[in-house]
Design a protein around this nucleic acid. Structure first.
Lengths: 258, 258
DNA sequence: CGCACATTTGACGAGAATCAACTGCAGTGG
DNA sequence: CCACTGCAGTTGATTCTCGTCAAATGTGCG
């Protein structure tokens, strides 16, 4: 059991008492952190930060952080064009890091927008220590590297999504992507996953207008593929949804070529 | 002068006699390689490889390489959907590395396609040595890291391009991007840069049909923004082309918010 | 209740894909 | 030398996806 490793770690943390840590716990459970690596985390875990929906993540008082670990909520990596059009380049969920700034972010000209109320911790100091002395923190190094690789693959997926898929394919593909990512951190329940985003924001993610998001969603609902409540989506027919997405979503160990 | 540093390096290489190395020379000139780091390069420079247009880069005999340095030609990082649609996720030009496989490429499900005849060298062995002992090769480490960061920014740009720009904006933005990248490696001449790609491939890059690429190009030509010959594009009116692209293309030190 | 905000609906038009045909051009072989 | 071939580019006609505008409906909240 993944959580067991986390519970038996030097840092005592009961997921039932601190549910905001469960996603990160799932992630770190596979990282094989050593005792002194857990200590790194304990030094910052108490200082989780909050950012309200609609605001950019940014520390006004101190220097901007390059690396944050999301505990709760959705963070969007967004670029805004001169005329106001906005494109979400990537979405960060609980357990992800906003590590773009470690990879050329200075040139990227993107902002990290809280799409919901967000709770996160600043792990920039940890990242810097790991960068300086990678051999001292093998668990953290692998953890950070894995998260960055995943973000890289997500970017590639996002290019394909916006570049070559039509509306209902984009929507289906996104739903599957989010489902699998929430599944890994134990936040799914009977095929459903958190979806508190407005159709407006969904449009900025998928590169389409709000109205078209609405109509595309209706189509998927009408065909019995998904069900939506105010802050959750449920996948009703996984197999057909995959088919709509084109069978191209990267699922663990999935095959690809037709 | 950038080339001077390269010419005075331990490896003698006259750009006039070996023009295929000039792009890499420009790049490495800024990397401040130490003597023993130049040696690394010399061990592989003689073994440049070739791949014909239309084929995937892949070494059949040995294990697949994770890291290649492009000397000449265009390499496309492509994903093909089940029904045959294809999206170019990134384009690698002379002086770039095809380093995707170093960053989660195993999951990325992309192929490296030669969009022209391509000449490249396999620097996987170098990359592995640098990964193992980064402190021994500070110049190479920074060089590889910079190239990866640039690739990351290009991915972000590509998401915005395909997600939120209309056809003529995409085309203008791409033209400017390519121009600036060729400029850095000294392959521009009076506002022109190499463009040997077919409109078919351009469609796969920009996420639009071949016919629409054709019509969009005609529009840009008609408006006096670019001129095209069989294998070069010339930017006629940089200022207005930037305006068409939305003023959002990342140029060195450029400002952004309106 | 009134307000702000999100979702939904309809009507219309613009942008882009598709299909099919045609042009221009370089290479190839008779 | 010229016909033939293949390929990239071009054009027109048509269809369809999607964006825009505007209004209506629903929903939570002070």
């Amino acid at each position: 059991m993944a959580l067991a490793a986390f519970e038996s770690s030097p840092i005592k943390m009961d997921p039932k008492k601190a549910p905001q840590f469960t996603s990160v716990a799932r992630r770190l459970a596979g990282a094989n952190l050593q005792a002194h690596e857990w200590e790194l985390l304990s030094s910052v875990l108490g200082h989780s930060l909050e950012c309200r929906a609609g605001h950019d993540i940014e520390k006004k008082d101190t220097k901007p952080s390059r690396c944050r670990l999301v505990l709760m909520g959705f963070v969007g990596m967004a670029r805004t064009l001169a005329d106001g059009r906005r494109q979400m380049v990537d979405i960060h969920l609980p357990g992800d890091i906003t590590a773009c700034e470690r990879l050329g972010g200075a040139q990227a000209n993107v902002a990290f927008v809280c799409l919901t109320d967000v709770r996160y911790i600043d792990v920039d100091s940890i990242a810097q220590m790991v960068d300086d002395e990678p051999t001292l923190f093998p668990g953290w190094q692998k953890f950070l590297k894995d998260l960055e690789e995943e973000a890289h693959v997500r970017l590639i997926d996002q290019v394909v999504r916006t570049g070559r898929m039509v509306a209902h394919e984009r929507m289906a593909d996104l739903a599957l992507d989010l489902f699998h990512r929430f599944e890994r951190v134990g936040m799914t329940a009977s095929g459903s996953f958190p979806m508190p985003l407005t159709q407006d924001v969904l449009g900025d993610i998928l590169g389409m207008s709000t109205v078209h998001v609405n109509r595309t969603l209706q189509q998927l609902r009408r065909e019995g593929l998904i069900r939506t409540t105010s802050n959750r989506w449920q996948i009703v027919d996984m197999e057909r949804l995959r088919h709509v997405a084109g069978g191209n979503q990267s699922r663990p160990g999935g095959t690809t070529t037709h």
